[in-house]
């Protein structure tokens, strides 16, 4: 259990720092593009690079957002229930999150394979093939799903855990 949690969290930290790096790079790159256009000529394919950056930024941010509990939810009703009942709702919520995101990840594996082997699409100017970008999307949703799975398993474990065991862990 602890091993699973630490693998997922390490992977999430990894995607998070990729996203942060890409975000900062986009800021510099867009500024560089503007200055370059004013002083010299426009950069060919600047838009495609920003688009590519956006995919990485969004997808690598999904799992971190889940980990930080920042996906917006409405707690108005559930918050009023006893903690035990809330845990059951939480299991249900995280089950849905896991199923949905892993389904999307699974679908996008198909998309990526199709773009890799059959319909070999690529961007208009820089000829960046779509399929590696598709795999980034797969990564994003699968990682989100893994964070969901982690949050799904933890309350289940905690329900069956006796107080003594949890004291030992501390």
């Amino acid at each position: 259990m602890n091993l699973f949690a630490s693998i997922i969290n390490t992977a999430t930290r990894f995607t998070r720092y990729i996203a942060l790096l890409v975000m900062a790079s986009m800021m510099f790159f867009i500024t560089f593009g503007v200055v370059n256009r004013w002083l010299f000529t426009p950069i060919i394919g600047d838009i495609e690079l920003v688009q590519l950056g956006m995919v990485v930024l969004i997808m690598c941010g999904l799992a971190y957002t889940e980990q930080a509990g920042s996906h917006i939810a409405i707690g108005l009703i559930v918050d009023r229930f006893p903690v035990k009942v809330q845990k059951i709702f939480e299991i249900f919520t995280n089950l849905l999150t896991t199923v949905v995101t892993l389904t999307i990840g699974f679908i996008y594996i198909g998309v990526a394979l199709n773009h890799q082997n059959h319909m070999q699409l690529s961007t208009g100017l820089l000829n960046i093939p779509y399929y590696p970008i598709d795999y980034i999307i797969v990564l994003g949703f699968v990682m989100w799903g893994m964070q969901g799975l982690l949050k799904l398993v933890l309350p289940i474990v905690s329900i069956f855990q006796t107080d003594q065991e949890s004291r030992k862990e501390v």
């Binding site: 996906h71 917006i72 559930v78 249900f92 849905l96 949905v100």
Partner: peptide, 18 residues
């Protein structure tokens, strides 16, 4: 219903969609 069960809004929108 899902939104009020504290399911994240994004997930609550996509479950009925699927």
């Amino acid at each position: 219903i899902l939104m009020f069960l504290r399911v994240p809004i994004a997930i609550a929108m996509v479950v009925p969609t699927f």
